[in-house]
Amino acid sequence: MKLTKIDHTANYCSDLLESFMLITFEETIELAKGVWLSKTNTSDLQILRSNGSRRAAKSVVVLENPEYSASKKRISANLESAYLINEGNDEHVILLESRAALGTFSLKTTAADKRDVPFIDSCKNLGLRSETIELITQFLNRLRAEGVEDELEEGKARKWIMRPNNFVTITPQTRNMCFRISVRETEVCHNTSKIDWKTGLPTYREFAFSELGQLEDAVAVALGSAKK
């Protein structure tokens, strides 16, 4: 990540120069429309604005009107428009265009399946952030769209289990603002790139679900677990 000072005239009829700082991320690849993966030192991100960022596996930065060059694998935006929403523990950082972030994390745009409403209400009562709840809502909706009919029932210690097949267990974690998801271990688990696996109960694997970039892998391993 680097910063560059840019000078430009205030408007077409003025000689007055204005300046702003341009933030640039190198080694950037596009994951989806408005979503990129890049690398940077976590300490460099401390210069960004933050509205109560939380700890997570990977850092997440929102950019307004970024310019991306696929050939140069580079993305740039005005420093003042960039802000940090996740503080990660490694060199990888997820970059979101502001319009994509709003579309992804706005609870107004995604309604939960009626079978999952009690779980979602429980998450709200626990005080989980709206963007965290939106992420799990999208995860569950994707499972429903794939034909999953199991009921999400509350068990012990805030665990919610897909029954009767018990192929997914979801535990809201208020301290880390994420979800602990447990699935049956299948071949799909060995073909993921966005999940940091932990050993669970025998024949099960667990991971912390907290980022948009994990959604596709999370859905894939859950469906793989359902079919085992």
Rank of each mutant, 00 (worst) to 15 (best):
T4K: 12
D7F: 13
T9F: 14
A10N: 07
A10C: 04
S14T: 13
L16C: 03
S19L: 06
I23G: 02
T24D: 02
F25T: 05
E27A: 14
T28C: 14
E30D: 00
G34M: 10
G34A: 11
W36M: 10
W36G: 07
N41F: 06
I47V: 11
L48I: 00
N51Y: 13
G52C: 09
S53Q: 12
S53W: 03
R54A: 07
R55A: 07
A56G: 10
A57E: 08
K58Y: 11
S59R: 03
V62H: 01
E64N: 11
P66V: 05
E67L: 15
E67P: 00
S71P: 01
S71Q: 13
S71I: 09
K72I: 00
R74H: 02
I75P: 03
N78M: 04
E80L: 10
S81E: 09
Y83R: 07
N86T: 01
E87D: 08
E87Y: 01
N89T: 14
D90E: 13
E91A: 08
V93H: 06
V93D: 01
I94S: 03
E97W: 05
E97P: 07
S98N: 08
L102W: 04
T104R: 11
F105E: 05
K108G: 13
K108M: 10
A111P: 05
V117K: 11
P118M: 07
I120P: 02
D121E: 14
S122H: 13
C123N: 02
K124W: 03
K124I: 15
G127W: 12
S130T: 08
E131R: 14
I133T: 00
E134N: 13
E134P: 03
E134Q: 12
T137N: 01
F139W: 15
R142A: 15
A145E: 09
E146D: 08
E149Q: 10
E149M: 10
E151F: 09
L152T: 05
E153M: 12
E154L: 09
G155T: 09
K159V: 09
N165I: 06
F167L: 01
Q173T: 04
R175W: 08
C178W: 01
F179S: 01
I181S: 04
S182R: 11
R184T: 08
R184D: 07
E185C: 07
T186D: 13
T192R: 13
S193A: 14
K198E: 15
T203C: 00
R205V: 08
E206D: 12
Q214T: 08
Q214V: 07
A220I: 02
A222C: 14
A222H: 04
L223P: 03
K227A: 07
K228G: 11
K228S: 11
